[in-house]
Write a protein that binds this DNA or RNA. Structure first.
Lengths: 138, 138
DNA sequence: ATTTATTTTAGAATGATTCTAATCTTTAAA
DNA sequence: TTTAAAGATTAGAATCATTCTAAAATAAAT
């Protein structure tokens, strides 16, 4: 655990009791620059010797999302992916290799208006296509 | 069927043979301003007396997406939704009632650049929050 | 007509997620 | 400290959207 007191403080500030499992999950997500699936998170933690049950992974991630520590990334209707909420950013998803690239975006500057919206909680932007790595392999 | 020859022509132009089931589905989607799930499409068609099998609904929608007639909207990791490809638009999704509002967006004008992208096939934008209808009920 | 390819279909299989009910852990009260 | 109450974790069952499979129906081609 890199920074136990800091992680615990983050949890407490959101009204979440810092159990071992929750600290492990938050620590994992903070040191994680991909957008892992539940399966991936579960396996990585198990490989590190932390065998949380899969139910706990689900429960905890859902809790973190509710409390605003993470966000769900729905790339397809198959597996959900999880993303740490840092700077506002959009995603580019490669159709070939499935890689997900983050790119900072200032949504405020886009100045988009949805007349039906009373309040906006979350903003997502996805571009899809072929990434340069895959293109260069062709 | 509103405009049989037109629908059949649309299918043929994409290299799809215009079977009855395919015409029914394309017709349904064209006269549909929501973003229906497979279940919804299946039930609506059945209610109209067109009992396609659910497998056919899945197969055909997937075919239409591959051929560029429809697009999948992944609002959550639960059910996929389908959208007719018309003008470029973003989506606002209400957290309370689940309503989905379209809003035309000129993505080109946003001028967003993903350095890792060699080519872009699709662009999606989702805002989430509470819609005015739900807000006014509170 | 007869073969061949294509489409549709019902139902089984899959797999991500949720539910359930029991166990373990922490907190609060006595 | 004990005891009780609340909260967290867990394994495994249940659910449910989607995909697979293999057969039946339809259309196209020889």
């Amino acid at each position: 655990m890199k920074d136990y007191p800091q992680l615990a403080e983050t949890l407490k500030s959101k009204g979440i009791k810092p159990s071992l499992q929750r600290l492990l999950l938050l620590n994992y997500m903070h040191g994680c620059n991909m957008h892992p699936t539940v399966e991936r998170i579960y396996e990585d933690l198990a490989a590190q010797g932390h065998a949380l049950s899969k139910a706990t992974v689900y429960n905890t991630l859902t809790l973190f999302v509710q409390k605003g520590l993470l966000r769900v990334v729905n790339l397809d209707h198959n597996e959900a992916r999880y993303d740490v909420l840092a700077v506002d950013h959009g995603h580019f998803v490669c159709d070939k290799c499935g890689a997900i690239y983050d790119e900072p975006i200032d949504f405020d500057k886009l100045n988009l208006v949805f007349p039906e919206a009373a309040s906006v909680r979350q903003r997502d932007l996805f571009y899809r296509g072929v990434c340069k790595r895959c293109r260069s392999k062709e």
